[in-house]
Write a protein that binds this DNA or RNA. Structure first.
Length: 279
DNA sequence: ACTAAAATAT
DNA sequence: TATATTTTAG
């Protein structure tokens, strides 16, 4: 009795393109051990969920089995697009450094498919970035050098709220929307040009994710959970007993223009459009 | 659940 | 080789 039978679920097996049931398949290709998952084989790990879609569609599936693999199967690498990152930064800004922990950030972002791990990881990196940033200039703002723009192209794509830098307060949820939001850095720095270019090329890498199955799938609208509901109430003060999510109603800053997080999987090629090939 | 560090994938 | 993202460990 192969262990695989008991340890590997059919779905998992399918995902890995291995035949758990029959040992004599011979389909196993040792040479390509880490067999690329077959997207078509299973339903989406993280359903598109076009907000309204989600709620109504649930009933149809009946058993949760079909859409459960979300946790079981390996999710495609998350690509932090400038849009996503911006949302991330906004979320952190609203929460205040203090409360800006993966879980809360994730919730505020309310991006479907985004996991806590995703955020945690990004946060880790972002903190590093901020730390490095502080050493260069307290002006707080955009990247200080072209090199930074190149190195941290992603992070440079979003304005770093001043309070992030060398600021002690680290207050709780921001009552209002004090910080300049989309204000494209107006510092005499020379980044603009380079950055903008990057911004554009950055997402030149159109992903034709054959994500969904047969039909060619969707390459879009993957992560987009309902934004903070239209409930733009004026609850400014910290919520009494209610849980977290009462964060200040996302001011304009959190308005999501559009986010098109790209997840890519195998087959995708790399187009490294680096402005500065070598640091 | 959070952060830091190691491992992988691109 | 370098870096972005994931996974593991504390």
């Amino acid at each position: 009795m192969p262990l695989s039978q008991t340890l590997i679920t059919p779905e998992l097996a399918l995902a890995f393109d291995i035949n758990a049931a029959g040992a004599a398949n011979g389909n196993l290709n040792p040479a390509q051990a880490p067999a690329p998952p077959q997207p078509a084989a299973y339903s989406h790990p993280a359903p598109p969920l076009s907000s309204d879609f989600e709620s109504s569609a649930s009933a149809a599936a009946g058993s949760g089995g079909a859409d459960e693999p979300a946790r079981t199967l390996k999710r495609p690498r998350l690509v932090w697009t400038p849009q996503l990152h911006k949302r991330f930064v906004d979320a952190v800004a609203h929460l205040g450094i203090k409360n800006a922990v993966p879980k809360t950030i994730m919730q505020l972002m309310s991006v479907d498919g985004l996991t806590r791990e995703n955020v945690a990881s990004h946060l880790q990196k972002y903190r590093l970035y901020l730390k490095r940033m502080q050493g260069l200039g307290t002006s707080g703002g955009g990247p200080i050098s072209a090199a930074d723009a190149a190195t941290d192209q992603l992070f440079a794509s979003a304005p770093v709220p001043h309070q992030f830098l060398s600021r002690g307060p680290a207050a709780g949820p921001e009552p209002f929307l004090p910080y300049v939001q989309t204000a494209p850095l107006q510092h005499p720095q020379q980044i603009t040009a380079a950055m903008q270019q990057q911004q554009q090329q950055y997402y030149h890498q159109r992903h034709l994710g054959h994500f969904g199955s047969s039909t060619g799938g969707f390459d879009h609208g993957f992560l987009n959970r309902g934004m903070p509901q239209p409930a733009m109430h004026q609850m400014v003060g910290p919520p009494p007993g209610t849980g977290f999510l009462q964060l200040t109603p996302p001011p304009a800053a959190l308005s999501v223009d559009d986010l098109e997080p790209a997840r890519r999987e195998d087959g995708g090629e790399r187009k490294v459009l680096t402005l500065f090939p070598d640091r």
